[in-house]
């Protein structure tokens, strides 16, 4: 057996078991990332930036240089780090609230400038750390703490399709995709392509990972998988939306 036991070698063993809830999709996304750090030998090159919200619990997750920023500001911090250290691989890790609500200005401008960083958004449809309030990606009719009768789209609008927005404004060479923790092999493929896109210097890499939050969804394991694979995947289609050699949608 390898030295990491059951865990990827890049995981910081002293901080395990990690602080995410049982069944949280963050662990799955970070496992894929950890495996890729090992496989692509990025341990000395990766700059890991995490946001406010549940994603900040990853601040000591890896044996890599990590920084934890203000809410929604991970994108500009990582842009600055990447510009200062172009040889490093910059990763901005955040949740859907940080990406599409408070940090959407940075997301849009980073996409327009085609900054050479990797933005990884974990979409679990709620503000999980604060108790499960409605977020921009909460599905229509989904019950949360602040939408106890279900999200009313007349009042709160339609859920944000962030990957489609990024694909519409992304420059040539940018990579935009949406994966899901229900399809781990596909998610790993997308994440590898996103990291390779940055290593090749082609510009922005954006990956949204559909994720789970059993604690705030108040679901058991079976209902968690069902909500992720049926309800979420129906509104947020999986796949690559933009990439090198592929026509950018909306242009």
């Amino acid at each position: 057996m390898d030295k990491g036991g059951t865990m990827p070698l890049s995981w910081h063993r002293e901080s395990k078991p990690h602080k995410f809830c049982p069944g949280c999709g963050h662990g799955l996304v970070l496992k894929v990332l950890g495996e890729l750090i090992d496989e692509m030998d990025l341990r000395e090159r990766l700059l890991f930036g995490c946001d406010i919200g549940c994603s900040l619990l990853a601040w000591n997750f890896f044996n890599v240089d990590s920084v934890q920023t203000h809410h929604g500001r991970t994108t500009p911090v990582m842009v600055g780090l990447k510009r200062g250290k172009p040889d490093m691989v910059a990763l901005a890790y955040m949740g859907d609230g940080a990406a599409y609500a408070i940090g959407s200005q940075h997301l849009v401008n980073a996409a327009y400038r085609n900054e050479n960083i990797f933005i990884l958004v974990v979409n679990n449809t709620v503000y999980a750390m604060t108790g499960g309030q409605m977020s921009p990606t909460t599905l229509a009719g989904q019950k949360t703490e602040t939408s106890p009768y279900g999200r009313d789209t007349e009042l709160a609008g339609q859920p944000t399709r962030g990957a489609e927005m990024m694909a519409a404004i992304a420059a040539e060479g940018a990579y935009v995709a949406r994966g899901s923790v229900a399809r781990m092999i596909q998610l790993k493929k997308f994440m590898k392509k996103a990291l390779e896109n940055q290593l090749a210097g082609r510009g922005l890499s954006f990956l949204e990972a559909l994720s789970t939050c059993p604690t705030n969804w108040r679901t058991n394991a079976r209902e968690t998988w069902r909500f992720l694979e049926e309800d979420m995947a129906a509104y947020y289609p999986l796949g690559e939306l933009s990439g090198p050699g592929k026509e950018v949608r909306g242009s």
Binding site: M1, G5, T6, M7, R13, K16, P17, C21, P22, G23, C24, T212, P214, N220, A221, R222, T224, W225
Partner: peptide, 29 residues
């Protein structure tokens, strides 16, 4: 990080009880 090994016909199932939080995602899958 102690590991428990369970031998099977096709392979070995190794679990680390110190890491398993009992979410049950594997049971369903």
């Amino acid at each position: 990080f102690r590991l428990l090994k369970h031998e099977g016909v096709k392979g070995t199932f190794i679990i680390c009880p110190g890491l398993c939080k009992g979410c049950g995602l594997c049971l369903e899958r």
